[in-house]
Amino acid sequence: MLSGKQKRYLRSLAHHVDPIFQVGKGGVNDHLIRHIQEALEVRELIKVTVLNNSGEDRQEVGAELSEKAGAELVQVIGKIVVLYKESKDKKKIELPV
């Protein structure tokens, strides 16, 4: 579980990151989850866009993505979901205590 200070730090890092995945009308599926897990292992911090045609609540999509991918939900702002997961092999981000 991330502290408020750690979430603020990750939000500041995520500001300059571009979204690399989109959730559309197909919703959240196993294929998308697998790719998100792989991207989190390499990058640790990613953004996902929830498209308008998704028809799902963005907060619920963020919670579902973080739960299924084993990641921390940093933020849902507008149509953007920010996820963080510490990498096992390629740790780059040093979280404040």
Rank of each mutant, 00 (worst) to 15 (best):
R58D: 09
R34T: 12
N29A: 01
Q59S: 14
K68I: 10
E41C: 00
R58F: 05
L83E: 07
L10A: 04
L73D: 10
A71F: 02
N53V: 08
D18R: 15
A69V: 06
A14G: 04
R8S: 14
G62E: 05
A71G: 09
E64K: 14
E86N: 12
G27V: 01
D30I: 03
I77M: 14
V28I: 04
V28W: 04
V23D: 04
E60R: 14
S54Y: 03
L73I: 07
D30A: 08
L32C: 02
K85E: 05
Q6L: 00
V76L: 08
E64R: 13
S54D: 03
E67V: 12
H31N: 14
Y9K: 08
R58I: 08
I80A: 11
V61Y: 05
Q22H: 15
N52R: 14
I46Q: 03
V42F: 12
L95Y: 03
N29K: 05
L13D: 02
S87K: 07
K91I: 06
G55Y: 02
A14H: 03
Q75P: 11
D18F: 09
V28L: 02
E67G: 14
V81C: 07
V23C: 00
G26T: 10
Q75R: 14
E44Y: 00
R58K: 11
E38P: 07
R11A: 08
M1D: 12
L13P: 01
L40D: 01
Q75N: 14
V48P: 02
H15Y: 15
F21E: 08
E60D: 13
Q22M: 15
A69I: 07
D57K: 11
I36M: 05
V48Q: 09
G55W: 01
G24S: 03
R34F: 10
K47M: 01
R11G: 07
G26P: 02
I80H: 13
Q37S: 10
H31V: 13
E38R: 13
E64G: 11
G62R: 06
V23Y: 00
L13M: 03
N53C: 06
D18Y: 13
G70E: 06
V82M: 03
L65A: 09
N29D: 05
V61A: 04
I93A: 03
L32F: 00
D18N: 15
E67R: 15
L10W: 02
S3A: 03
A14E: 05
D30C: 07
Q59T: 15
Q59N: 15
K85D: 04
K85P: 02
G62M: 04
G55S: 06
Y9M: 05
Q6H: 01
V76D: 07
V82I: 07
G78A: 04
E86F: 06
E86A: 12
K88L: 10
E64W: 11
R58M: 09
P19Y: 04
V81K: 09
L83A: 07
P19F: 01
D18K: 14
D57P: 05
L83P: 04
V97L: 15
